[in-house]
Amino acid sequence: MPTLEKDGRKIWQVRTTKSQLIRWGAWLVGLAAFIFSWKEISDNTLWFMMDNVGEVVADIAGRATPPAWSFVFELGRPIWDTLAIATLGTFFSLVMAVPVAFLAARNTTPSKVLVRPIALLIIVSTRSVNSLIWALLLVSIVGPGVLAGLIAISIRSIGFCAKLLYEAIEEINVVQVEAIKATGASPMQVMAYGIVPQIMPAFAGIAVFRWDINIRESTVLGLVGAGGIGLALQSSLNVLAWPKVSLILLVILVAVVIGEWVSAKVRGAII
């Protein structure tokens, strides 16, 4: 037990002096970083603009209500597109993520030195870049529209799905795989009978989970020109058509809530 000698008596302490110092140091560094960061943000903010924030909020709220309800009929196509981007994007990303996951998992990769690092690189690079950035890049390559959004979502989701899937592959029960091997099955059959049934629940869970996230992400892709309801949001914002903006935001909110509900239901049914 850490103690401190003081005037010949031992005083009990929770921690040793050294670990105590490290703790205080960590707190100090964190606090300093925060204060510094806050000062930077504050310096870059025109605070006198904030005096009438209340009025601005009230003004925008006034303009935005009531939402332009009838506009909802013009949103059919954008909503369809958004759903298509999310659903097809999830599908295509899974098609690509499955082989990547098998190449990345320690127990199924053909080569730990050569293939696995490449698979991990694909996972990291697709995951670190936000789907909006992928969308920006693809809009400049394939032109504005749904296609750019679809490819952006597909690429962005590869890393996410492959990472979760390869973790699931690494956690399978090896004895079941051994049992299939022992029957004289070929490597492909070992995969189909020993590994795939074991990762099916994880796979289904990942698919639905990512679909839910992709619904959220595809609603805003239009802001950079990549199709879907975000496009309508962008054009309404550009002309300051606040009643349309508030309606679109409501539609997005409803879509996200429905997406989450569906994904929770499907996950419950599968597992």
């Binding site: 025109l46 601005v56 805003v220 989450e260």
Partner: peptide
């Protein structure tokens, strides 16, 4: 439920551009 980008759009409209 609210996407970061959408929150940011609303806040930029209220507070103006900036960090």
């Amino acid at each position: 439920a609210l996407n970061e980008i959408i929150v940011a759009i609303i806040l930029v409209a209220i507070l103006g551009f900036g960090p």
